[in-house]
Write a protein that binds this DNA or RNA. Structure first.
Lengths: 229, 229
DNA sequence: TCCAAGAGTTGAACGTGTTCAAAAAAGTGA
DNA sequence: TCACTTTTTTGAACACGTTCAACTCTTGGA
């Protein structure tokens, strides 16, 4: 039996090395030529391995995409750390987080459509609602939980509890918009964020009005019942 | 020059006959085995034509899907006619229209995912937001315009004007939910509709409260500015 | 009736993602 | 060192959506 470091150095190292080589090659080609125009054969050739070998590590082309998605997640989490530490205002925190996502994802905007295409399919493991992407989804929701919890906003407890998930849904909506946005410098998506966030802030504060409060409570009830049904 | 009836009987008839044969065969196979498992070769074989011939009339497998989508649109329009003529209550009209869509689309639920998969791609002509699907989209929005206009609901004029489009967006959301819904008899989607519609009704009536009215107005402003930006 | 032009039809061929049986390499215990 | 097992790697083969040059049929005018 070899030592633990030996294992990571030799045993796993060989396979992991190939795995990472294939992934990085794939991501580079995706970035350079888009998802559709990058063939598995091209990835294998560029990485200096056989097609079958690529499939030995990634069971489909989509799985290579999944890996890219996870990568973005990490970049986003790093990008928002500073904002979440410094800022207290709810609108600024939320705007900052959404903007960061835009910045991080910007290089991939061109072929993001193809990604969300497969992501829209329910059975696909790439769907943001799927079981397989639960870790990534929860990590993402966690960011919004921090947005809410570290902010100055005052809210009824039950709404506060559901809010992170709702904000994540908002982000899904913005992503959908973003994918379709072909304006220069993504002007329209930026416009959407800057005009929507303050509105959400005001909407949330409206829950203090008794008549609104009732509707809001029922809304939460509906969301809960549908989640568990 | 032949007469008009001659043209439809002979000149166009031959081609149109083949076109419809291919379409109906495709839709049947889609229904029977799902979109993914139905091959163009199978459609051609079953229809008794060559693969190339199918492509002569439908430039891709997705276009056959588009045709199915248009088909649904017509069925839906027919299905809601009665409700829209008889019913005056806003919630009942809206619920009826959404329910009808569910009924009409039910046979296709299994493979609808694959349809919305390609629909999610921005460049795809099948996207509900695309230029090519404008006619289908506007026909769909028209239904919601009738829902609003024939109802007893009292609303500020500008909100009333935007509402059909918003309700169409709501339906897109419900469709997204529906696609992911694998509960028996689509229980969860039905639950979503029955609990969401009355809530929307109450939300809309809340716009009479001054504080809410301001936010609603701004929301409309945002929607308008983003649509034109 | 015949012929040129267009409409309709064919199926082999291409490029793609993916599979799989077999070969090569690496690891394991004596 | 030697057999053996397991991990890794290979590339031909498959099924699919799609294309296209060639073919047949239909039509309308001379």
């Amino acid at each position: 039996m070899t030592t633990l470091t030996d294992v990571t150095d030799s045993a796993t190292a060989k396979g992991e090395q190939t795995r990472e080589l294939i992934l990085s090659t794939a991501l580079r080609l995706f970035r350079e030529q888009g998802y559709g125009k990058t063939t598995m054969r091209a990835i294998a050739a560029e990485a200096g391995v056989s097609v079958g070998n690529a499939y030995y590590y990634y069971s489909s082309k989509e799985h290579l995409m999944q890996a890219y998605y996870d990568h973005l997640q990490v970049l986003h989490r790093e990008a928002v750390a500073e904002i979440l530490a410094d800022e207290k205002s709810f609108t600024k925190r939320l705007t900052g987080v959404l903007r960061s996502w835009l910045e991080v994802s910007e290089p991939y905007h061109e072929f993001a459509g193809t990604f969300f295409k497969t992501a829209a399919e329910p059975k696909s493991p790439l769907s943001p609602f799927s079981e397989q992407s639960r870790p990534a989804r929860e990590a993402s929701i966690e960011i919004f939980r921090q947005v809410v919890e570290g902010s100055d906003i005052k809210l009824p407890a039950d709404l506060r509890a559901e809010l992170p998930e709702l904000l994540w849904l908002l982000q899904m909506g913005i992503v959908l918009f973003w994918v379709h946005d072909d304006s220069e410098s993504l002007r329209r998506t930026h416009l959407l964020i800057t005009s929507t966030v303050p509105l959400i802030d005001r909407l949330l504060r409206l829950t203090r009005i008794p008549g609104v409060r009732g509707v809001a409570n029922d809304l939460i009830g509906v969301i809960r019942s549908i989640k568990t049904a």
